[in-house]
Computed example of a mutant assay.
Amino acid sequence: MRWWDIDPVLVLEKDLFPEDAWSRGMFWSELAHSRGPEATRRYLVAEADGRIAGYAGLAAAGELADVQTIAVARHHQGTGLGGRLLAELLRAATAFECAEVMLECRVDNIRAQKLYERFGFVPVGFRRGYYQPGNVDALVMRLATPSDSGPAAGSPSVRETEIND
């Protein structure tokens, strides 16, 4: 993800997460930590037909990585793009030398839970009332050893975080 991707990412973000969409400032802040030798973040976008079809982000701290976000445009859901983005985040966690990867997902998002389970994530707890509004619980999941799954052939391209001034 680059700075010029933020506006189209925000459109997708607001469509998919209208109640708790990230702000422009939140994305800028994450990208500010994604460059240089002290980088602790990796943000990606997936493009199809010249448009952003999905995005994902990971934060690393010591031996622990946390999946911050994964989003796929509605018309690309079910195509394997979410899995490809997750695989890239797990590669990033390995590059950051993280031994564990954590994430949260809505307890009612069964599709996401199945994706994470396919990659080896296991449920480890709940965060009550994590998603607002609605007071929806989050399922906390953990992966002890990041897998190195290859990208699916024919999938939209995914590129790594970069900030160009």
Rank of each mutant, 00 (worst) to 15 (best):
M1W: 14
G36W: 10
V9N: 01
P37N: 06
G25D: 14
D148P: 00
I6Y: 06
G54E: 06
R51F: 06
P123I: 13
R51Y: 02
C105T: 15
G54I: 05
T94H: 07
R91C: 11
G129T: 00
A93S: 11
V101K: 05
S147V: 15
E30Q: 14
G120L: 05
H75C: 01
I110G: 07
E13R: 07
L86Q: 11
G83Y: 13
F96A: 08
F121A: 11
M102F: 15
F121V: 09
Y130P: 04
R24E: 13
L10S: 03
L81Y: 09
E30K: 10
T69D: 09
E13I: 07
M26G: 04
D15L: 13
L16D: 10
A71E: 06
E63T: 11
D137A: 04
V101P: 06
S157D: 13
R111L: 02
I70E: 04
E97M: 00
P146H: 04
L44Y: 14
K14L: 08
W22T: 10
G125C: 00
G150M: 12
F17D: 07
R2S: 14
A71L: 07
R118M: 12
L31Y: 07
C98E: 00
A59Y: 06
P37D: 06
G134K: 12
D7T: 13
V107K: 02
A93C: 01
S23Q: 14
S155A: 15
G82T: 12
A56Y: 00
L143W: 02
L64S: 10
W3E: 15
V45E: 04
E13A: 03
L85F: 10
L64F: 08
H75D: 09
A112I: 07
M26N: 11
E38F: 14
E104C: 09
